[in-house]
């Protein structure tokens, strides 16, 4: 029960910070709220026994990506100064869409309540291999390089990241005269 309450508190914190991210006029404050929101997500991972994921979230999202965003904002003078409204002309329509999507998904999960917690009901839904979920990092590493597990997605991801890396350099590199 106490776990439930902590989970709900962390979720609400994450959502609230997310709301600040999208509604705040000041981009810098929004970036800080984003960090807090990431922290909340890391807390959720801890609650779900995904310790490794929580650490990765802390290191990568809070440690690297948020800092990068903040640097980008600080180095872009005009972004720091403007205080524009973050809403475009269709907040009502977007709100209706968001609420209805939420309603549909909530309805679906409510319909599936006989299976709560997942894997408890009869029929399908076997819980995935607990040894992976429970955050044994060694197991995770082994799965990433085993030919009978996830070595191929791992390799494909590396090629994908290479393409993204090259692309971002290519886009950011100043063009030489003959090309402009």
């Amino acid at each position: 029960m106490i776990e439930q309450i902590i989970f709900i508190v962390i979720s609400l914190f994450t959502l609230m910070m997310g709301w600040i991210v999208v509604s705040n006029n000041n981009l810098f404050h929004a970036a800080l709220a984003l960090m807090a929101s990431f922290l909340g997500v890391a807390g959720l991972y801890v609650m779900l026994d995904a310790g490794f994921l929580a650490m990765a979230q802390l290191l990568v999202y809070i440690g690297a990506i948020s800092i990068l965003i903040i640097f980008a904002i600080m180095l872009t003078r005009r972004m720091m100064q403007t205080e524009e409204s973050p809403f475009n002309s269709q907040p009502g329509l977007a709100g209706i869409t968001a609420v209805s999507v939420f309603a549909v998904i909530a309805f679906i999960f409510w319909q599936m309540r006989e299976f709560w917690p997942l894997g408890a009901g009869e029929g399908a839904m076997p819980p995935a291999d607990k040894s992976i979920i429970l955050g044994s990092v060694a197991k995770l590493g082994e799965y990433f390089v085993s030919p009978d597990a996830f070595v191929l997605p791992f390799e494909v991801a590396s090629v994908m990241l290479l393409a993204a890396l090259i692309g971002s350099i290519w886009v950011a590199w100043p063009k030489t005269e003959d090309e402009s």
């Binding site: 996830f150 191929l152 997605p153 494909v156 991801a157 090629v159 994908m160 393409a163 993204a164 090259i166 692309g167 290519w170 886009v171």
Partner: peptide
């Protein structure tokens, strides 16, 4: 495998964005 489908889709798309 759906994981591979997703990664393949990204591998297809990212170069196209660029």
């Amino acid at each position: 495998d759906l994981i591979l489908v997703f990664l393949a889709l990204e591998l297809l798309s990212i170069p196209l964005y660029i």
